[in-house]
């Protein structure tokens, strides 16, 4: 199958793949084109493809109309703290499960697996009530709370820790290191690629989450990009150029991260499946 593909087959494959690629990026192209139009240009019948001249004012208008800086900061803080706590805690738990023998560890791992099986909406209302009782509605900690720990992370990292040899543990014990030191100094650095994968996942899911930030943080200056963008629609329902400019602003940070860490993204995802 991998060997000689004749040119004709290759051309057919390319044609199919290009059609797919066009379908994938067309919405983004349309988003960018619309973001540079006037309202009049965007509502021509039949639709006008290109703006006469690209209207950057749409960007400054929407930037002024909404607290985008707060959106970026809130999203950034949420992602930062979720990555910090969930990767550290998951790595600790995974190390214990993979390298230590102690009673209760199987029960713990069962809890991890159970959590992964249950659709997250069932946690939502109690988590909301918890945040409310703590008086944390409309704060950054409210955004972080559901992501403090991660069953998925514990599961994902297991594959990386399992691959690391047990002998390291014994060698270090003889050298007089305690278990925390063994974990922190020896295993943690070796699991780096797993940690990076988990961090990427955490960032992506936190960034895409819509319902949680929508219900806990209702004040505009406490919203994330995702939720803030959704609220933009309610206010500017008719002004698609500005809505699209807002959308472009909201997706740019992730696109930049994706371009930089592309390999990590793809490897990270490939490791989650199938085995």
């Amino acid at each position: 199958m991998h060997k000689k593909l004749n040119t004709k087959t290759k051309t057919i494959i390319h044609v199919i793949l290009i059609i797919g690629a066009v379908a994938m990026i067309l919405p983004f192209v349309w988003m960018i084109l619309t973001s540079g139009k006037t309202v009049a240009e965007s509502t021509m019948i039949p639709p006008q493809i290109l703006p006469d001249s690209f209207r950057w004012e749409n960007y400054s208008t929407v930037w002024d109309a909404l607290p985008f800086i707060s959106f970026f900061i809130n999203t950034g803080l949420m992602i930062f703290f979720r990555i910090l706590t969930s990767t550290l805690f998951s790595a600790m738990a995974t190390f214990a499960v993979a390298k230590l023998e102690f009673p209760g560890k199987n029960v713990f791992f069962m809890i991890v697996l159970t959590q992964m099986m249950i659709p997250p909406q069932i946690f939502l209302t109690p988590q909301y009530l918890l945040v409310q009782n703590l008086g944390l509605l409309n704060t950054v900690p409210a955004l972080v709370i559901p992501g403090l720990v991660s069953a998925f992370g514990t599961f994902l990292l297991r594959q990386f820790f399992m691959k690391l040899p047990d002998e390291l543990m014994e060698a270090a014990t003889i050298d007089g290191a305690n278990i925390w030191q063994i974990f922190y100094r020896i295993y943690l650095p070796l699991a780096k690629s797993g940690l990076v994968s988990l961090a990427i996942f955490t960032a992506l899911f936190a960034y895409k989450d819509l319902m949680w930030p929508l219900i806990v943080n209702m004040s505009q200056n406490k919203m994330t990009l995702s939720a803030g963008l959704a609220s933009l629609q309610g206010q500017y329902a008719t002004n698609y150029p500005e809505l699209m400019a807002g959308s472009v602003l909201a997706i740019i940070p992730m696109v930049i991260l994706y371009v930089i860490f592309q390999k990590r993204f793809i490897q990270g995802i490939a490791t989650t499946g199938g085995k």
Binding site: F89, F102, I118, V149, I179, W180
Partner: peptide, 23 residues
Amino acid sequence: MMFWGWILIAPTLIGLLVLNIFP
């Protein structure tokens, strides 16, 4: 080992109990 095992899983375990199992 038991001591460290429980210490290491504690944050995740408590988190899962409070944020997921109890809910």
